[in-house]
Simulated scan of single mutants.
Amino acid sequence: MTNCTRIPGFILQGFSVIPELQTISATIFLFIYIFSLLGNISIITAVTLDSHLHTPMYFFLKHLSFTDLCSTSTTLPRALFAALTGSKLISLPACAAQLFVFIFCAATECFLITSMAYDRCLAIYQPLTYGTTMTHQLCCALVGVAWVSGLLYSSFHTANTFTLSFCGPVVEHFFCDIPPLFQLSCTDPHKHEAVGFVIGGCVIMSCFVLTVLSYIQIVITVFRIKSTQGRQKAFSTCSSHLITVILFYGTGSSAYMRPANVYSPLQGRLAAIFYSILTPTLNPVVYSMRNKDMKAALRKLYIRGPRCCSESWEER
């Protein structure tokens, strides 16, 4: 069998195996990508310029939007270009780089979501000491750990995937992802897959458990609040983040927590559309629609212009 690493690269199948659907899909995803860019850039700009949003929660949100921006920009532009021009070939280094950056962004987002859950837990469970506990130094440390951990996690999975020998150039996907690449392995990928499951399970499940524990504490604390208004305010603050958690873990687990031998290209594409396109696109919508401060900042940004926001920043 031919080792695919000796030929120019891979051939990405695209959004669909039906040629007629490629252009339609590309048009739809182009609008989604533009919407994702505008949404995430708006969140980053609003948080940066509006002094009212210079709090730990929005500090984490800004980094989350940046990872979403990088994630969609890693996969969609190349897929859109291939669908519109018919140029489906991607070199081996470009494929490895695409996988590395995508996993890096996804893992970093996982750690950021955990940090955001911890931040909300402290804000509700210990409101009196929250300001002295969640300092700017701690926020920077948590974000730094998220980026470094994402880098290490992605380095492992990229090396674990591309040390395999590949027999076929056609990747049944619209970007280089782990499950479809495992399917192209000439040798039995079970050892690589098992190691990936163990490392991924330990890291991701640890983040998931910490996030769940934080929200259990939040729910217990909220139900102890006697004031109905205070209870509604606490739920309103956390509901947007909880929706993000459900979208992130729900769609991602459906793709990566299954063996390669039962991988379905159609199901893989559909799952990837959710966790690599729709979830990063919906995050800005969720946070802006469920948050009065964010809606006010975005209204100020687009109606009164960035100059007003920058003046607010200078006054601070």
Rank of each mutant, 00 (worst) to 15 (best):
F235Y: 12
G200K: 11
L99H: 07
S16F: 10
K62G: 04
L112V: 07
A271W: 09
L282I: 09
D293W: 09
L210I: 13
N261Q: 15
C140H: 12
L270N: 10
P284W: 06
L184N: 06
S154Y: 00
S312C: 13
D188R: 02
K295R: 14
F81T: 11
A146W: 01
C95V: 04
S288A: 15
C202W: 13
P127Y: 10
A26E: 00
G86L: 08
L84E: 09
L12N: 00
L64A: 11
T74E: 07
C4P: 02
C140F: 12
H157R: 01
K300P: 00
L76N: 04
C105R: 03
F60T: 00
C140N: 12
L30N: 00
A96I: 03
S65K: 01
C238W: 01
H241A: 08
L247F: 10
T244I: 10
I32A: 09
T133A: 09
Q267Y: 13
Q98I: 07
C207M: 09
P180L: 01
D119R: 05
G252T: 03
V143R: 10
A260T: 15
S71Q: 14
A117K: 02
L12E: 02
S227D: 14
Q22C: 03
L247G: 11
V209T: 12
C238G: 04
I218E: 08
I178Y: 00
Y58N: 05
F182S: 03
H157W: 05
V286I: 15
A234Q: 05
V101R: 08
F274R: 09
T161G: 01
L210H: 11
K300F: 00
S165K: 12
C110D: 03
P280K: 05
S71G: 14
F182L: 15
S264Q: 08
W147C: 07
P19Y: 03
F10T: 01
